[in-house]
Design a binder for these strands. Structure first.
Lengths: 217, 217
DNA sequence: GTCTATAGTCCGATAGAC
DNA sequence: GTCTATCGGACTATAGAC
């Protein structure tokens, strides 16, 4: 018989989610969580660097996996599509039932500190994507935009996916978000340098000072 | 003769920035900051809800001002442009010299907690923009995308603006970022609505139910 | 596993400005 | 007298050090 129970981490996670749901994040102390999980606070902080992290366990591994997908993508000629594709193709249901994900999002949305951490996690995925795209030879500014905008597109899709019925498809939602984006991005005809300054000239100007652009497209 | 010195808030801000710069954010306690500003920690927390906020003082007012610009915009037919225009037209130099802004960004980038707060502030501006656009009659999903993507475009521009020489122009930088985005978003030919040319028409369709629609593509 | 520093809150008191 | 800014001190929880 073990001197201590095993599975402390899982018990802590379970206890935390239960308590946050019952009485809110800020009304729940680490002491309470630890007591319910039958460990000391010391053990809590052994597994989670701070109180919020208990809701984001595994996010580092998820990010690493997604970044790897970017690095392995057969073609990064359309970086925005690569990003949304990687995100859409992941099996999000594997992270828990849609209902539990909805509940988790609700807990997060209800607390500024948790929202802050959530944004931070998404941002670090974006940075991972950006770096991966750059490694694949994508221009730095394009990589940044593709990573951040791609994630934003996915978030829009994810929101709808969470709220929708079981039949809904994330990839389809992402496509819709992409169409929506295409509909609000000014086309070349509406660009700052019309007429005498064609898109080519605009690109050349961009090359010199503002945002260096490499010759794609 | 006043029993206490006036201008505690300013002294606290100044002391905090100095100390963060000298010895880093996490190596500086609120006690230290308060001592240098000749007040107690109680006074610090009267002005700043937490230790990080001292670096983001005035951000609520800035957000309110920018949101108001969105509400007052003559036309929101091109929501993405409205967002980038509002951000570009603001006089950022009024917040301090470019050098001091560079230094501030460096301090923030060097600390995860501060980065987290920074992201959170940007996000709340995005939410403000989104709500304002919706108030102006823009479809919810378009408003969300325009707000978040617009801010991302501006961030890209801002990064370059900070690094560039005095001659650089934020509006121009934003235009460049917009062109860059246009270059990576799949064109209409690849869209589910091949017949549509005008962004406004697409937006109108979106009005009805962009992402809820199941039969596209 | 215990001990300690820091963050952040609450309440009451006090001095000056209006 | 009322309002505002400050102080003092006691208190809890987080988080890290020993």
């Amino acid at each position: 018989m073990p001197r201590w129970e095993h599975g402390s981490e899982d018990r802590l996670k379970k206890a935390a989610i239960e308590l946050f749901d019952e009485q809110g994040f800020e009304n729940t102390s680490v002491i309470e969580i630890s007591e319910r999980a039958r460990v000391t606070t010391r053990t809590f902080f052994r597994y989670f660097s701070d109180k919020r992290e208990v809701l984001f366990a595994g996010s580092d591994e998820l990010r690493a996996m997604l970044v790897e997908k970017i690095l392995q993508a057969p073609d990064v000629g359309e970086p925005l599509k690569v990003v949304t594709a990687v995100l859409s193709e992941f099996d999000w249901e594997s992270l828990g039932s849609r209902n539990s994900q909805r509940q988790r999002q609700a807990v997060i949305a209800a607390n500024p500190e948790l929202l802050e951490r959530d944004l931070s996690k998404n941002h670090s995925i974006a940075v991972g994507f950006m770096d991966a795209l750059r490694q694949r030879g994508v221009d730095a500014d394009i990589a940044r935009l593709a990573a951040h905008v791609g994630i934003q597109l996915f978030c829009t899709a994810y929101i709808h996916w969470l709220e929708a019925g079981v039949k809904s498809d994330l990839a389809l939602m992402s496509e819709s978000a992409m169409s929506l984006l295409a509909s609000i991005v000014p086309t070349n005809a509406q660009l700052p340098f019309p007429g005498e300054k064609s898109a080519r000239v605009a690109a050349k100007q961009a090359d010199r000072s503002p945002l260096r652009r490499t010759g794609q497209r």
